[in-house]
């Protein structure tokens, strides 16, 4: 069995690892830190036609079933959010939106700015009813900390029964393993429960966790907390890599690899006084005035060495690749599509 190395633990990494595994490769995925995926809203703005079925299969999960279509949700400050795929409690079908929402936030906690959201929702013609969830969580603590046991959810359910709206908007407060609590909450409080669209919190982490577990289920070996510190490249083919973690480093031999290390925000690319740079110092990088668009140069997703050779068995995927069209807020979709193309390019070996 051929062995592939996937560098990067975000959407592009997990999806390409999963795809490779499905196609019979032995896959080791190496990653560290928190990927942009975990900082995202956990929703896909659109679904690329080319791999719609694969993405649907990849993200299909009993733990957190996704919904697709023209969807709309409310952000934690009340602004509208449109997307094509989301967890079931994040959005409604476009056109089926509520006329009034109870905005249920934690007092003084940034997980849902209930007064701002109410003001903005009212300004958009949706009647908003502010409601403070009982209990206090320090602003730096994730709200998930206080909503881990049945008792806390019972208290919440009882409180929400006191609202007059049929729909309640709550902060993002559940991990992947507890996602179905939201279904139970709906039953207990008799209201439709909507989770506020929030970046930098639980929904993004859930999506990353879901992708990780799907990859692990498929048999991908996941080396977390580790970093590829060197690549063994001979002319235009890579043969192996050095992986370091803690006080140990190991050399591994691989037959192919996908670099899905992410943007400068997550340390995937260096951003120093010379602009965007390749941390491996081996591959060509497209610099752009807009760092969002800069990244590895590629030919059909295959990376190019500094002396212009197209790598035979090393592809790039996701935010670390240069892109002419990447926008803030649509990175996830592009990353998944890019991962699919990277695997196809590798398979074209």
């Amino acid at each position: 069995m051929s062995r592939a190395l996937v560098v990067g633990n975000g959407a592009a990494g997990y999806f390409s690892a999963w795809l490779l595994r499905k196609r019979g490769w032995e896959v080791i995925l190496v990653g560290r830190g928190t990927p942009s995926t975990a900082l995202s809203t956990g929703c896909l703005r659109s679904l690329p036609d080319i791999c719609r079925a694969e993405i649907s299969e990849f993200l299909d999960s009993e733990a957190m079933p996704p919904v697709t279509g023209r969807r709309e949700g409310v952000s934690k400050i009340g602004t509208p959010f449109q997307c094509w795929m989301s967890p079931s409690h994040s959005t409604w079908e476009e056109g089926e939106g509520p006329k009034s929402i109870a905005v249920a936030g934690l007092e003084g906690h940034p997980s849902l700015h209930l007064h701002t959201a109410s003001a903005i929702l009212n300004g958009r013609g949706i009647k908003a009813e502010p409601f403070t969830i009982p209990g206090s969580v320090p602003p730096d603590a994730p709200p998930t900390s206080s909503f881990r046991n049945d008792e806390a959810w019972e208290v919440l359910a009882e409180g929400l029964k006191g609202t007059s709206s049929e729909v309640v908007l709550i902060p993002a407060m559940v991990h992947l393993r507890d996602y179905r609590r939201l279904d139970r909450l709906e039953v207990r409080c008799g209201r439709k429960v909507l989770e506020a669209i929030s970046p930098l919190s639980a929904p993004g982490q859930r999506l990353a966790d879901l992708m990780c577990s799907r990859a692990a289920e498929a048999g991908v070996t996941i080396w977390d907390g580790r970093k590829v510190t060197a690549l063994d490249v001979q002319v235009d083919a890579m043969r192996g890599a050095t992986v370091a973690g803690g006080m140990e480093a190991r050399d591994i031999k691989v037959d192919a690899a996908i670099v899905a290390t992410g943007s400068p925000v997550v340390d995937g690319l260096d951003l120093n006084e010379r602009g965007i740079c390749d941390p491996f110092s081996r591959f060509l990088v497209v610099r752009s005035n807009d760092p969002l668009r800069g990244g590895y140069d590629s030919s059909n997703n295959m990376l190019l060495t500094i002396d212009g050779r197209v790598m035979k068995n090393l592809a790039g995927a996701g935010d670390c690749l240069a892109s002419k069209k990447r926008q803030y807020g649509s990175g996830l979709t592009e990353s998944l599509e890019s991962a699919y193309l990277a695997v196809r390019a590798l398979e074209g070996l």
Binding site: S36, P199, V265, L271, Y328, G331
Partner: peptide, 20 residues
């Protein structure tokens, strides 16, 4: 530039990308 630009990319992701 550099780390401040990384910070700005994240801010734009949130303010522009999510909140519009």
């Amino acid at each position: 530039a550099e780390d401040q630009l990384r910070q700005e990319m994240l801010r734009r992701h949130v303010m522009r990308g999510v909140y519009g």
